[in-house]
Write a protein that binds this DNA or RNA. Structure first.
Lengths: 226, 226
DNA sequence: TAGATTGTTAATCGATTAACAATC
DNA sequence: TAGATTGTTAATCGATTAACAATC
C-alpha cells in the first residue's frame, strides 16, 4: 500500500496515533472523527478525509474502532519497526538530543554519534560517540537512513555533503543554515536524493516576535492586533 | 505600517534578511529577485510578491538596493530593537538553548530562566536561573512578551497556563505536548490571547522516517520513490 | 535602442471547508 | 424509526505559478 501522503497529512497521522494510544490506555474502543479532531486541533472533516485516504473505515453508528485504526497508522508510519538514526555534532544541543526520551516511544534509536572532538563531549550515556573521520566507514558498514545534524552553522554544509555521499537519505537539520533537499538527478547522476527537514529555532523565534509585535503598542491593551 | 503578513511570508523575510546581511558584508549594493530567490530556495516571483507586499521598490534595471531593503525588513521584523524572552525548564535542551549563539545576532536576549530545581541546573552562564515559583512575580515586574518552553511533557500544560496567566503572549514550545494558540475571547474573558509555535522534534523525525520508508525496499535501488 | 527586470494580473493548483446523501 | 455519523462531492479559499506589459 503506497499512498504518497503529503507532509501535513503525515504530521496529523502521527498526532492521531498519539491520541489513539492514550485512548487505548484509557480503555476506549471507539472514537468519533469529531473527538479525534478536537484532540488534535483540526476539524472532523479533515480527520475523515485523512482516514479515508489511508483506507481506514469507520462505522456510521459507532465511529472508528481504536485498535485497528491504531494498528493501521502504526504500520503505515513504520512505528511497528525499529528505526535507526545517527547524530552528528555533540555540542550542547546534540548531547541533549542523545538523551531525548521521546524517541524510544516511537521505536526510534540513535545508534551512533559523531563529533570532531569526541574526547571533549560531555555526554556519557550508552550511545557511542565516534570521531567524525569515521563517519564514512561507519555508514559503509551500517545502513542507517537518517541523520540528525546538530553542528555549528559553519560546518553544516560540509557535513551535509558527507552525509549525502555516504548514502544518508533523510536529514533532520538543527543548524541555523537551511539545507535544501536534493531531488533525484538534480545534481550529479551519482548522488542520492535526500529529504531534509530544517528546524530553525531562530527562524521560529523571529516569527514569534513578529506576531507579538504590538505588545506595549499605542492602544495599550496589551493584546496583539487581530 | 501594518501589513498582516502570513507566517510563511514572515519566515521568508527572515531568510531574505540573512542573505542580505551576508551580501552587504560582501560589498553588494544591488540584488535581483532572481538571485535572492535562489539563495532562499524560492522563485523570483515569490520574492517580488513578498517585497511588493512590504512596499519595497526595486529598480527595473538594477534590481533592489541592498541597504534600504535590509533596513526595511529589519525594522519590520523588529530586529532593530532589543527583544526579550524568558525560558522555562533548564534540562539538557533548555540549558543548550540558554547558550544558543544564534539569538544574539537577532537582537534577542533570554533575560531569565526558571526551573523546579534551580540548584541542580548544570548551566553556569550569565543568565540567572530562578525557581519556578518566582515566575509570576518576575513577570509581574518585567514585561517580557515571549516564553520558551523546554519542560518535560507532563509539566507542559501547567506551565502553559501559568505563562498565559502571567501575560506571556508568545510561546515557543519544545515539549512533545502540542499546545494550542489561544485566540482572544476564546476562553475566559480575562485571559490573554497567545501565539504558539510548536517545535516537535519527534513529529519531524517521524515524518522524515515516513519519507525515507522505501530504503532497502524491493526495487533495491536505495532511492526513495518519486 | 535593445535587453532585462520589476510589478501586477490572470491562471493554476492544492488544501480546507461546507454540505449532504447514504447508512448504521 | 429517529438520530447521528461517515464518506464523498462541490464550493471556497489562499497561495503559488505563469505570463506579460511597463519601464529603466
Amino acid at each position: 500500500m503506497d499512498l504518497n501522503l503529503n507532509r501535513n497529512t503525515v504530521l496529523r497521522l502521527v498526532r492521531y496515533l498519539r491520541v489513539l494510544e492514550q485512548l487505548k490506555a484509557l480503555g476506549f474502543e471507539k472514537i468519533f472523527s469529531n473527538n479525534l479532531g478536537d484532540a488534535v486541533g483540526v476539524t472532523a472533516a479533515v480527520v475523515r478525509k485523512d482516514l479515508a485516504q489511508i483506507e481506514a473505515v469507520g462505522n456510521k453508528r459507532g465511529g472508528y474502532s481504536v485498535d485497528p485504526l491504531l494498528a493501521k497508522i502504526s504500520e503505515l508510519l513504520g512505528k511497528d519497526r525499529r528505526r535507526e538514526a545517527i547524530l552528528v555534532g555533540c555540542g550542547r544541543l546534540g548531547s541533549a538530543l542523545l538523551d531525548y526520551p521521546g524517541f524510544e516511544n516511537d521505536n526510534i534509536e540513535i545508534v551512533a554519534a559523531f563529533d570532531l572532538h569526541p574526547e571533549q563531549v560531555a555526554y556519557t550515556g550508552p550511545i557511542p560517540v565516534h570521531h567524525i573521520d569515521t563517519l564514512e566507514s561507519y555508514l559503509g558498514q551500517h545502513h542507517v537512513p537518517v541523520g540528525i545534524l546538530t553542528v555549528p552553522d559553519r560546518a553544516a554544509n560540509e557535513v551535509f555533503e558527507r552525509l549525502l555521499a555516504s548514502g544518508i537519505i533523510g536529514i533532520l537539520n538543527f543548524s541555523g543554515m537551511p539545507l535544501k533537499p536534493r531531488r533525484r538527478g538534480e545534481y550529479d547522476a551519482g548522488e542520492h536524493c535526500c529529504y531534509v527537514e530544517n528546524i530553525s529555532i531562530s527562524l521560529e523565534l523571529a516569527n514569534l516576535f513578529y506576531l507579538v509585535r504590538f505588545v506595549d503598542s499605542a492602544d495599550g491593551s496589551g493584546y496583539p492586533a487581530q
